[in-house]
């Protein structure tokens, strides 16, 4: 396998990963640059981090964004799990085609269209019934939940599709009610997918500029909106500092959750092995 082709694949990978990571590494490197000129090195300094934490506009926008992202992720997980369950465990029902269309459409919808259409809905609703009065955190959260739940539904649905239904069937045959079966059998098995869905929704919400710009009111700016307005005016060293912190946060979150999921899987496997061993022992003694 090693040889000319191995060399080609290795160098292609090296180029690809350099392409993916060099810009991020440069961003991090220049966040420690003393010079205000973002592309000229002027010595090591952490002053931009200090400036970042004194920037009230960024701090309050970050708080708004994290708040919206946490609410979005939680709501999208609830709605998306139900939607994924409906798609994979409910068989046929009237309106299923429309339902599956509405679940998959947000994934291919250009953000500008989603943003515009939701804004027009909120304006029309306000005119008609007086809710939502003004736009802000609530309208952004509703908009984010709508597209994030589609992603969660896909994650949950693919997990459920790869899952043997016999466990759930067995619990039903033993007389458990469907809701109890879901809570005690289905939910624990799909919990890694649920964690992945929550993190995915959180990231999508935290990252969204376009939809939030349409449905945000004048008083509520999210972090991407503030970053965008600063970046449009030119390079800004505090944005480099912010970028470094966000990259660090994302890396830590992903590493920790991957580690937790691996540990949980190992525990489950160990428990299953122990249960099997106990059963075998019992069978041996009764014989």
């Amino acid at each position: 396998m090693v040889g000319r082709r191995g060399l080609f694949l290795t160098s292609a990978m090296a180029f690809g990963f350099a392409f993916l990571y060099l810009p991020i590494l440069l961003l991090i490197l220049y966040s420690f640059n003393a010079s205000r000129l973002v592309t000229v090195w002027g010595g090591f300094s952490v002053k931009w981090y200090g400036e970042l934490f004194r920037d009230d506009q960024i701090l309050s926008a970050a708080w708004v964004s994290f708040e919206i992202a946490a609410m979005t992720a939680t709501l999208a997980c609830v709605l998306g799990t139900i939607a994924g369950l409906v798609m994979s465990r409910f068989g046929r029902f009237r309106g299923r085609t429309l339902f599956s269309g509405m679940i998959s459409a947000p994934l291919v919808m250009p953000e500008v269209i989603t943003g515009l259409s939701l804004l027009l809905l909120f304006v029309a609703l306000e005119q008609a019934i007086g809710w939502p009065s003004g736009r802000g955190v609530t309208t952004i959260t509703i908009a984010h939940v709508t597209f994030a739940m589609a992603y969660v539904a896909v994650v949950i649905q693919s997990r459920l599709a790869g899952l043997d239904e016999s466990l759930e069937e067995a619990a039903l045959d033993l007389g458990a009610r469907p809701f109890k079966v879901f809570m005690t059998v289905t939910l624990p098995i799909i919990s890694p997918a649920l964690v992945a869905g929550w993190l995915l929704s959180f990231t999508l919400s935290l990252d969204d500029l376009v939809i939030a710009s349409f449905v945000a009111g004048p008083a509520s700016s999210t972090l991407p909106m503030v970053v965008f307005s600063k970046v449009r005016l030119g390079l800004e060293p505090t944005i480099n500092a912010l970028a470094t912190l966000l990259v660090l946060l994302a890396t830590l979150t992903i590493l920790v959750s991957a580690w937790l999921m691996q540990r949980q899987e190992r525990n489950q496997r160990r428990q299953a092995a122990r249960a099997l061993a106990a059963e075998a022992e019992e069978a041996a003694t009764t014989d």
Partner: peptide, 26 residues
């Protein structure tokens, strides 16, 4: 993991990174 990781970091900031690389005195 290395392929997936950039996806979890801010899209806007990854685009911003290229401004500093591509501009005239970049």
């Amino acid at each position: 993991f290395l392929v997936v990781l950039p996806f979890w970091t801010s899209f806007l900031i990854r685009v911003y990174a290229w401004i500093g690389i591509l501009k005239n005195n970049g």
